[in-house]
């Protein structure tokens, strides 16, 4: 039985197809201004990649900030539930899931059965989200994809005092002016960002079995900074870290269809 999960984020829409727990395909597109269209188009691309048609898909669940825009979904699940379900499928040992996306971050804690025990969400402040890194990269004149690798070249970091992305941008400009090497600034940016996310992790309750998901999980510089801050090795799905909520939604769609859920 093939099912799909469509995760409509503030910046990107992700769709994933699975069958019996095996991932068939996934696709990602910018959410843009017309989220309905983005959802449909992303789903269509995932179908093409898997070589199947819409009729082959038994059930579709949507999740994410724009979950209600997916008019072809049979049901919706909260992004917390989806993140927990998708991550635990890949990393059954994970007990803390940190999902860091473009315009939001959330950290949740699960018990041994995968039930969510608690969570904390930040969708109101750019600090601690991908937008922070994007803003800092722009100030530094570095492409977002290059920012992480650049930071790994640095042997030291300086403290960025500002907690706000807009103020931190001014601070980065001052550091450039003070001739602090670019890689050092890049590392400082990642450490500041990691500080924000680790505060959220501590809020939920730090455990060593911690998975990092979401688009920002692709950034090795950030992952390294967060590992250092929390003194823990992170579980990261290098292949598709931003698709785990869509995976969770697809798995829950299968369970619902199989009658395991009310």
């Amino acid at each position: 039985m093939i099912t799909a999960g469509v995760d409509v984020g503030n910046m990107f829409t992700k769709a994933l197809l699975q069958e019996g727990g095996r991932v068939l395909s996934y696709a990602i597109l910018a959410s843009g201004l017309d989220r309905k269209r983005a959802a449909r188009e992303t789903f269509r691309q995932a179908l093409i990649k898997a070589g199947v048609t819409e009729d082959d898909v038994c059930n579709v669940f949507s999740t994410g900030a724009g979950q209600d825009e997916v008019d072809f979904a049979a049901g919706t699940v909260t992004d917390i539930t989806a993140a927990a379900r998708g991550t635990l499928k890949i990393f059954p040992m994970a007990r803390i899931v940190a999902d860091v996306g473009a315009e939001g971050a959330k950290v949740l804690k699960t018990d041994d059965d995968g039930r969510v025990l608690g969570f904390t969400i930040n969708e109101k402040c750019a600090a601690g989200t991908g937008s922070f890194l994007e803003t800092m990269g722009r100030a530094l004149g570095v492409q977002l994809e290059e920012l992480g690798p650049l930071s790994l070249e640095a042997e030291r970091a300086v403290t960025i005092n500002a907690q706000c992305a807009v103020f931190a941008e001014s601070e980065v400009v001052s550091l450039i002016h003070a001739k602090v090497p670019r890689e050092v600034i890049a590392r400082s940016i990642h450490e500041a960002m990691a500080g924000r996310v680790s505060s959220m992790v501590r809020r939920v309750g730090l455990q060593k079995k911690l998975a990092l998901i979401g688009g920002v999980a692709r950034n090795k510089g950030f992952a390294a900074a967060l590992e250092k801050d929390l003194d823990a090795k992170l579980l990261i799905d290098d292949e598709k870290p931003e698709f785990l909520c869509a995976l969770g939604a697809a798995l829950l769609a299968a369970e619902r269809d199989a009658g395991q859920l009310p």
């Binding site: 315009e103 109101k124 402040c125 750019a126 937008s131 922070f132 803003t135 992305a165 807009v166």
Partner: peptide
């Protein structure tokens, strides 16, 4: 509606 200046800009 967004408080954050970065999000308000988007």
């Amino acid at each position: 509606s967004s408080t954050c200046v970065v999000f308000a800009k988007s």
